[in-house]
Design a protein around this nucleic acid. Structure first.
Lengths: 192, 192
DNA sequence: ATACGATTTTGATAATTGTCAAAGGAATGC
DNA sequence: GCATTCCTTTGACAATTATCAAAATCGTAT
């Protein structure tokens, strides 16, 4: 069983037949690092499970890239605003490292929903989980300073600073790169 | 057919039997204005459809109330972080006006999911729609100034300024009440 | 109409954070 | 090894926004 099916199985136990049906609409992809995997303005028709590697979801603001999300091994990533609306997305997705992903072709899933109601449940749980992640992110902005948000990100992805540029992290935290640099300097002197 | 069932039907057509099953786990409530309807620290087991009235979702930050969400007629409201996790919520919900709501008892829905897969689909679509609303809100913060966010809120709920205090709107926009007041002054002079 | 309390606005000031420019470091290719 | 380029840090300054206090306005009850 591949890592994607394992991930799904742990949310809801799936019969052989269901796993087969899902596999039929899933593509395994090997992506080289630094690939712009999905471009804003396009319509997204898949969602992706990262077997390994790192994805960065970002948008353009005043000519600059602003990171909206990081996804790493064992997580789901997609231009979810487009996937569920059929409208062009605001987001871009870049694989920042060599990655192996499983892409589920969402536009082919309707017959599977019809045939296997358990997949409908699976879909409900997946989107619910993503909703809660987004809610967590909003709470981080609500309750925590930029410094605290940085520290929480380090807990979540400890080696993130080795994996992406500081500017990408800064925009994810909602601050300028210079400000993040100063926060880091403060942490160094405060803790050393 | 009541307004809640109408709302659900327009997402997915529901048979008589399904409507009946949903009605059995739904309670109609008449809530006087200014009621603290749900309190943080409690576990939320329902979600609510507003037939009319206005709900304000808020949390406490440094002793002050910060608005996370407004919901008005025809919309869904819940302490969604708790509903899906079973953990105590960070949120409070206040009905700011006399309201009529339909409360679906989510903790009784599992048998309905089991019996009627279409309800699972309904649940999936409901949470998807709410995800997209949250994504929109994040994009508003990403792309728009406080002034633009205020103008968009006015489009969404035109009479919001008559319905809640300015401070509640300001915290929803992520700015101080004084700053919002100045933005309003600027708009008045700019447009007059 | 008037007085009271609540809400909103305005003013002055301080704190936070962004921007621009330059310097310092690290990685890469020749 | 050295040059080039990219990334990060630091410094100086400007812009934005918060905070605190006071004044103005609004709504309501008497």
């Amino acid at each position: 069983m591949n890592s994607f099916l394992k991930y799904l199985n742990q949310m809801v136990p799936l019969s052989e037949a269901v796993q087969e049906a899902i596999s039929e609409i899933t593509i395994r992809r090997v992506i080289p690092g630094n690939t712009l995997f999905f471009q804003n303005g396009d319509v997204c028709k898949e969602f992706h499970f990262l077997e390994n590697g790192l994805a960065r979801v970002f948008y353009h603001k005043d000519g600059k890239e602003v990171t909206a999300w990081f996804a790493s091994e064992g997580q789901i990533v997609s231009a979810i605003d487009s996937l569920f609306t059929g409208q062009p997305s605001f987001y871009n997705i870049q694989m920042t490292e060599d990655s192996v992903i499983w892409s589920l072709q969402f536009n082919k899933i309707e017959p599977v929903f019809q045939k296997y109601p358990v997949v409908e449940r699976l879909g409900r749980l997946l989107i619910t989980q993503n909703y809660l992640l987004l809610d967590e992110r909003m709470k981080l902005f609500a309750f925590c300073s930029a410094e605290e948000r940085y520290e929480k990100l380090l807990i979540q992805i400890p080696d993130i600073t080795q994996r992406v540029k500081l500017g990408h992290i800064a925009s994810y935290l909602g601050i300028s790169q210079e400000h993040l640099s100063r926060i880091r300097a403060g942490l160094r002197h405060g803790h050393a």
